[in-house]
Amino acid sequence: MPTLTLYDAIGAALTEEMRRDRHVIAFGEGIATKRHDLVAEFGALRVRNTPLAEGIIAGTAVGAAASGLRPVVDLLFAPFLCYAMDELVNSAGKLRYMSGGQFAFPLVTLAMTGAGWGVGAQHNHNVEAWFVHSPGLKVVMPSSPADAKGLLKAAIRDDNPVLFFIDIGLLYQPGDGPVADEVVPLGKAAIAREGSDVTLVSYGKTVHHCRQAAEALAAEGISAEVIDLRSLKPWDAATVLASVEKTGRLVVVHEANRLCGVGAEIAAVVAEEAFACLKAPIVRLGGPDAPVASSYPLEQAFVPQPEAIVAAARRLCRRQIA
């Protein structure tokens, strides 16, 4: 099995999709500098560096997407999306609906976030829920190179604007190489580990924390199922509900601020749709309502760690037994 980093996987997805479809173009602050293999293969017109101006990068992608191209834009770090909010939220997300369906916006926005590099809260802010909350947009956040490649390919082929969040902490960790040309459909979760006592739902790097927690729980005789959402919008409620119907217990885990985070929606839907199956209250583990510090121990403390997940799952399982 070949190994690949998530960074490489993104490059591989771009290469394959740009080969497949001449309408795919890529631009951003330094993409042509960092990915010169793309420039070499596809030319300087399809792979461009841009000025440091996130608003016009995103706006240009919106205009190009509505008129026949399929742009992928790299906006670097997720907090920089604040400069591109109007273009993404008000234009890409709304103008299809507001025009009575006259336009479509097949564009992908790449943005990095998450603990790992100690870059502080203006480079590390998991803002994915903002975009989940905005109509007309799709949101993904992969946890592995294989999924990153497959999801990016699907995102490029999708006719809607997709926010593609890249977990900084996973960017250069090698993983299993994806199968060539495999597309991971948007909106489909993966069962990362099967189990029967408790469901752990997550995305991004905390999927790995859930896997580690599941290992530890297994040693205690608790069988945890781990679900990797992969797509946050649309999210795969059917897979989550089926798992909770089996286990009766749910822990939702993410690095983003717990308050109004994606986990709140998942918990609410499970409470609405599968209340009768629940043997214990739903638990949400997420970051605090605080900017992320750059100091290593504080940055790590922001993120739900395997021990906390183990403790939460154990509590839920004991509660039932007691």
Partner: peptide
């Protein structure tokens, strides 16, 4: 008449992309 927006300045942000498509296509 494409991509009309009432966000003041949004037409300016989208025009380059429309023009880019005209050229590239």
């Amino acid at each position: 008449v494409v991509l009309t927006s009432t966000i003041v300045g949004a037409e300016l942000s989208m025009a380059p992309g429309v023009a880019l498509s005209q050229g590239m296509l």
